[in-house]
Every structure is written in structure tokens, then in C-alpha cells.
């Protein structure tokens, strides 16, 4: 399952710009191409701020 698939299932396909899979950050442009490994922990990163 890709990150994009998971977020669509979760009902959040447009709200999250970045996720973290274990300790790797993945941004929205790469959601469709990033497969979530088994047993991985996935966190939604809100990215309201920065800097």
C-alpha cells in the first residue's frame, strides 16, 4: 500500500503535506510512489510552521 492509498483510505488525501515512516520523511509529491513497509510506524506531519 502506498502512502497516497493509505491517506485516501484515512480520508486525508489532501490535508497532510508530509508523513514520517519510521524515521524517514516523505512529502506529498512522493506519496503515490512510496510503499509503506510492513510493521512500519507512520506519522502525519502537519507542517503548519517551519523556521
Amino acid at each position: 500500500m502506498s502512502v497516497a492509498d493509505l491517506l485516501e483510505e484515512y480520508g486525508d488525501s489532501h490535508g497532510t503535506p508530509v508523513v514520517r515512516i519510521n524515521d524517514q520523511y516523505v512529502s506529498r509529491p512522493n506519496f503515490a510512489d512510496t510503499i509503506i513497509p510492513d510493521e512500519a510506524e507512520l506519522f502525519l506531519i502537519p507542517m503548519i510552521a517551519g523556521g
Binding site: P17, V18, R20, D23, Y25, S27, R28, P29, N30, F43, I45, P46, M47, G50, G51
Partner: peptide
């Protein structure tokens, strides 16, 4: 620990995120 992990990596997470966008 569930978001930016600033206590571990500071603001360095921004590098690849900025690059991706």
C-alpha cells in the same frame, strides 16, 4: 516524537521536505 522530532534532529527535517516541494 510523533511529529518533527525536534528534540532529536532539530530543524534538519526541513531540508528534504523543502527539496521535495
Amino acid at each position: 516524537p510523533k511529529q518533527n522530532e525536534m528534540a532529536v534532529i532539530g530543524t534538519t527535517h526541513l531540508v528534504t521536505i523543502m527539496d521535495d516541494h
